[in-house]
């Protein structure tokens, strides 16, 4: 039997990480799946086809069910609910600067609204009062925007050292032994 190359083993490891396998379990499952892939390849399948079969078997659902069972048994540590990927996605995106926090978006929206309203009123001949209001409001909004920008930058720096540990599953379904 030809053993898998390190790259092929890495593919399996990556797949298990993608489906949310805890690090404590990953080595054992990598070996299990690698044996399964080697077996499929011995029967004539290509690595890609064998990997596709593995992806169908080791889904996030099956891995989650296994981990939940092991957590209930006390064989795996339970991690916090806040680390669940579905819970953290938005938080992570904000931390990495992929999306703006809500209050930043509101500030930018308010700033643009004032500008647009000013432009509309100015087009109706109310240029002087609107210019006055805009000249008072805009520096304030610009200052607030700068402040929001500074907060976003500091959040991004903090996110580099923020731990995003293994994925967690709480709220397990009813136990199923086999």
């Amino acid at each position: 039997m030809t053993p898998l190359t390190p790259q092929q083993t890495y593919c399996l490891r990556q797949h298990l990480r993608q489906v949310g396998t805890q690090e404590l379990l990953i080595d054992e499952l990598v070996d299990y799946l690698a044996c399964q892939v080697e077996d499929s390849m011995r029967k004539g399948l290509s690595f890609e086809k064998a990997l596709a079969l593995i992806r169908m078997e080791a889904t996030s659902l099956s891995v989650r069910h296994l981990q939940q069972t092991l957590v209930r048994q006390g064989a795996l540590p339970q991690t916090g609910f806040w680390r669940h990927p579905a819970r953290c996605t938005k938080r992570k995106k904000v931390a990495f600067g992929l999306i703006q926090p809500v209050h930043h978006a509101l500030l930018i929206g308010a700033f643009l609204s004032v500008l647009l309203t000013g432009w509309l009123l100015a087009s109706r001949g109310l240029a002087i009062p609107v210019g006055l209001v805009a000249s008072l409001l805009c520096p304030l909004l610009i200052l607030l925007s700068f402040q929001a920008f500074a907060v976003a930058i500091s959040e991004r720096i903090c996110s580099a050292i923020r731990p995003f540990g293994p994925i967690l599953l709480v709220d397990p379904p009813a136990e199923k032994e086999y």
Binding site: D27, L70, Q73, E177
Partner: peptide, 23 residues
């Protein structure tokens, strides 16, 4: 047997002291 049914049992046997493992 799938890994989902085997490993919980192996871990349970280990907890009960019926099985020991070595890596």
């Amino acid at each position: 047997l799938t890994f989902g049914s085997l490993y919980p049992l192996l871990y349970k046997l280990e907890q009960e002291g019926l099985v020991q493992n070595e890596s």
